[in-house]
Design a protein around this nucleic acid. Sequence first.
DNA 1: GGATGCATGTAATGCGTTACATGATTGG
DNA 2: CCAATCATGTAACGCATTACATGCATCC
Lengths: 192, 192
Amino acid sequence: MAGMSLEHAILVSLLEQPASGYELARRFDRSIGRFWTATHQQIYRVLKRMESDDWVTAEEVGQDGLPDKKVWSVTPGGRSALVTWLRAPVQPEAVRHELAVKIRGAAFDDPDGRAALLAEVERYRADHEATLAGYLAGERRDFPDPAARDARASLQHVVLRGGIAYERMVLDWLDDVLATLRTLDPDGKARP
Amino acid sequence: MAGMSLEHAILVSLLEQPASGYELARRFDRSIGRFWTATHQQIYRVLKRMESDDWVTAEEVGQDGLPDKKVWSVTPGGRSALVTWLRAPVQPEAVRHELAVKIRGAAFDDPDGRAALLAEVERYRADHEATLAGYLAGERRDFPDPAARDARASLQHVVLRGGIAYERMVLDWLDDVLATLRTLDPDGKARP
DNA sequence: GGATGCATGTAATGCGTTACATGATTGG
DNA sequence: CCAATCATGTAACGCATTACATGCATCC
């Protein structure tokens, strides 16, 4: 009852805008995916469970030139389930930072291995730079006016600012990591 | 074969210092737990699998006034498995940020609900402030001298600096969240 | 003709969490 | 005497990941 909140992420997304399972899956690759990831298989499974709990209902919509789809909406029961969850304490986050394990593990590899890790960190850094650029573009597009917004937009924006702050922090830290790795093997070349 | 790295976190920890399952579990509540969490049940299960893969070996150690323990060490096979994994690409992190879901969900609750969330964010912020204080104390204790260290200490320190940067970023962002929530309901009181 | 996008699923496996279970010693 | 610490496990359940599977429409 406590954590398990793919359901709740779906409820928030469907309250913002009803959608098919497929559209939800795409949102979980984009905006919602910034703070909660899910694949389409999970989404279809959870939607079924939510339907049997009467949290969501589907409306069949025909499209021309495209397959029919089921557009899901939140029921009053789903909305009250969301409110109950919103008012429960936040669970501590489970941390899984693979790169940090590899960095500490690099102490048990040789300079060749550390050179490989350095290259991998550079690639990883480029990914995060692209993510930051995407967030900033989204911010300019969706929140051009800093004031005069409703609650929904203000809350969406503060979550996006969290993503931006996270990415900036990661980039700074990765620079620190790169500098540290270079200090260990100054020439940056493989040694026998 | 790709992600699944509780094994690898255990290998790093045992290479830094051999330990019993129980001691490992405590490390996963402290230093290693900063970037990889695990319970003792997981650890015992995984140690068994690692033993049958010949990645670790146990030595029975008797203690007086305390139960015997099995002290685990990494075998050459385990070390080479670690090196193989270290040189593989880093998997993208799976993001699960429950608080962000709740913040966006707060658009669908009333001022009472947002007041409850605000109180919860304040509690959450206090937790992160305590975590940061713990990291800073650990840094002063374990890394008093900024230069003249070996590779292992340098790498442990840069990972710890990552934790510190993360906590500072979170605290700043939570202040932003609190200010945003207060803007939505300026009086901070429940309304009918 | 092949790739990509839209749309929805099933099945197998494995990882993580929670609950249950035992038993000795030390300190208040 | 009760709680906490040290020490090691089993069992059940559920969630997540990966692979497999289908089928139509559009664009190059």
